[in-house]
Nucleic acid binder design. Structure first.
Lengths: 174, 174
DNA sequence: CGGCTGACTTTCCAACGGAATAGCCAGCAC
DNA sequence: GTGCTGGCTATTCCGTTGGAAAGTCAGCCG
């Protein structure tokens, strides 16, 4: 396994600034965005159904077959993903059969793309059989990576990152 | 909730190319990098312990207290994360007490940074109380985002992405 | 009409995640 | 030595996840 050349002993992680310097001035209590995300996509079945949705899978039988999930679990999780607004049901009609529903990604579901790419990247660094599906830029054929950047466009490393408690301005992006 | 302006009806997701066009020519069976990642960080406790590690938390009592996990769960999950190589135990000695261990991120753990940032980004778009911790670029003070790029440096959207079955060349990056 | 089919839905089960509680144990203070 | 303390460890309990298998149900076909 890579990543074992060990002088990372005391490399810094993010720097805490402002009120966040005193960790005990503050508690994560319901504010953590990661926990909020995990409530919706924190299960194996949710993530791999979304993987299939990103790969273009839409129909119930395709989603169950390609994920290897039992139809009971797939149905339950798809229902939750629809309720949570990550997928939407769209009617379709195959000639000679009755109307059924496809599951398509909503904007909210699509906005998970960086998470999916980041997880694929990271999973690819782990030991295990090489191969599998890879994502490339249609324009140039190069592999995709999830990169951390600031809104000003700079690439940002972990060491260059500061963590602060958000000024509560602008409650939600309208 | 944002993301409900609905003409996303038939927007494409990734385009399958090569052998991957025929979905049934291939099965995910142990190849999916996301599933591989989830085996290590697929639990709530693993993710929020890592969150604390990125925020600079190192000691057992701090990690349990700041995550709100019971010490039993924290101990078990920390052990797993150490076994899996995401954290490493480092001895320290507080005057007047015996030697104890801090948990520090290894290179492998640090390489989860894009995943953590992507999940925070996505979680921030969900409904719920605004505020909490935010990450900024120390250089310019702008918020961090996880962006999807190709190795040639182009920003890549979901529509510009192609999925293919990896040519099995170069088994692991040496 | 009654049968068939695909998409769920329900029921039952084993395994797992996580909380609460109690117990253990190394080693410093005394 | 004894006691104390912090970091685990074991036990119990409960809710959730997920597999298997059977049941339901809409609606097209005959």
């Amino acid at each position: 396994m890579a990543h074992t050349q060990e002088p990372e002993a005391d490399r810094p992680v993010v720097t805490r600034v402002g009120r966040f310097v005193d960790r005990d001035a503050w508690t994560a209590e319901g504010w953590c965005k990661i926990e909020r995300a995990l409530e919706l996509v924190g299960t194996r079945s949710a993530m791999i159904l979304l993987r299939e949705a990103f790969y273009g899978g839409r129909r119930f039988d395709e989603l169950t077959r390609r994920t290897g999930l039992s139809d009971a679990v797939a149905a339950k999780r798809l229902k939750q993903l629809v309720d949570d607004g990550l997928l939407r049901q769209q009617p379709y009609r195959e000639p000679g059969t009755r109307t059924r529903h496809e599951y398509v990604l909503t904007e909210l579901g699509r906005s998970l793309f960086p998470v999916v790419v980041a997880m694929m990247n990271w999973g690819a660094t782990l030991a295990g059989p090489a191969g599998g599906v890879e994502l490339v830029h249609a324009g140039c054929g190069e592999l995709l990576r999830a990169a951390v950047r600031c809104t000003a466009g700079h690439d940002v490393t972990l060491e260059e990152t500061e963590a602060q408690i958000a000024r509560a301005k602008r409650a939600r992006r309208a």
